[in-house]
């Protein structure tokens, strides 16, 4: 059953079409990733799905409820960890958590237990009674995450949730989110710039650019879609071109010889590799170097948006923005 369903969802700011007739469905219990360069319309889509903004055109249903007509029902079923920080600087971490619990009508005694649990998870239990203004950027982000989890939402929206966090914290947080997802069947809708994360965690991914979805599918499907695995192979004997012979071997789709290296497109890299090497040995040839190159989501991303995600990865602008946010908040 689709738990999020959008139909021609559109948001226009003045002349800018930030989200352009986007239609997709997210299945219950899956982790759905939204990937795209800065300004692609990811946050705007989340803003509409979480009822912060009304769509200019089109519609969407979240957990079966219309995001405009039944906004309050939607709100009670979702959690949002926004891109920009929303914790209150002047309160302590604990006070922020209690306030959040109250906003989601979590009873006090239940809230206390859960707060303890999630604060331990994000390693903020020691800082819980300090004012948030003394927190570092990473700590704030972790507190924000803890807040999004406190009411065990049916659907959790994560907008660049691990941006600016160190690898260790990221891993801990993802493990917990995966656990929550498995134990409680939580659905997760997320955006991220960390490709490895999206690849490893998301059941399905949508690539969005200029407000439009360019590609949607399982990470593997997307990768296969841009042309499967490639075996790069060099032989000791460079006197002749053996391309034609290699092309006849099983699994092989296409062979190109570039200087001394053969680029062999194959259907299933792991199975093709031993077969091809065996075939070459049978021809009484010797392999000097070989490598199996699996397509990365990065290449998929490049293919559909014309931009490499690597360029985005440190994502200076986003980090700067977060820093600005913190500085502004501190004044």
């Amino acid at each position: 059953m689709a738990i999020i369903e959008t139909k021609d969802l559109t948001k226009v700011f003045g002349k800018l079409i930030a989200v352009d007739h986007v239609s997709f469905a997210v299945e219950e219990g899956e982790i759905f990733g939204f990937l795209g360069p800065n300004g692609a319309g990811k946050t705007t889509t989340i803003n509409m799905l979480t009822t912060l903004m009304n769509p200019t055109e089109g519609s969407a249903k979240v957990a079966g409820f219309d995001i405009v007509k039944d906004a309050n029902k939607v709100r009670s079923l979702i959690g949002l960890v926004p891109q920009d920080l929303t914790v209150d600087e002047d309160l302590t971490g604990m006070e922020n958590m209690m306030l959040q619990a109250m906003l989601y009508h979590v009873p006090k005694d239940v809230a206390k237990k859960r707060i303890e649990e999630v604060l331990r998870l994000v390693e903020l239990e020691d800082a819980a009674n300090r004012k948030v203004e003394t927190y570092s950027g990473g700590m704030r982000k972790r507190l924000e995450l803890a807040e999004g989890l406190i009411h065990y939402p049916k659907i959790l929206f994560l907008d660049e949730p691990t941006l600016g966090l160190d690898v260790q914290t990221r891993t801990v947080i993802w493990d917990y989110i995966k656990k929550l997802k498995e134990e409680r069947g939580m659905t997760i809708f997320m955006t991220t710039h960390y490709m490895e994360e999206a690849d490893a965690l998301c059941n399905r991914i949508a690539i969005i650019d200029y407000g439009k979805i360019r590609a949607l599918g399982k990470p593997k499907e997307l990768k296969d879609g841009i042309g499967g695995d490639v075996i790069e192979l060099a032989l000791f004997d460079n006197s002749k071109d053996f391309s034609e012979a290699i092309a006849k071997m099983p699994y092989v789709i296409d062979v190109k010889r570039k200087s001394e290296t053969y680029k062999i497109k194959v259907a299933k890299g792991e199975e093709a590799l031993p077969n091809i090497i065996e075939g070459i040995l049978k021809m009484n040839l010797k392999v000097s170097t070989v490598s199996l190159i699996k397509p990365t989501l990065d290449q998929v991303y490049l293919e559909y948006t014309g931009r490499s995600l690597r360029e985005n990865e440190g994502n200076r602008e986003e980090v700067m923005r977060m820093m600005r946010n913190i500085r502004r908040a501190r004044q």
Binding site: T50, L52, R75, V87, E89, L103
Partner: peptide
């Protein structure tokens, strides 16, 4: 609104 706290209130299921 500036500090984003308002957004937290707006996504919450409160009147």
């Amino acid at each position: 609104r500036r500090f984003g706290f308002l957004n937290k209130l707006l996504v919450a299921p409160i009147a």
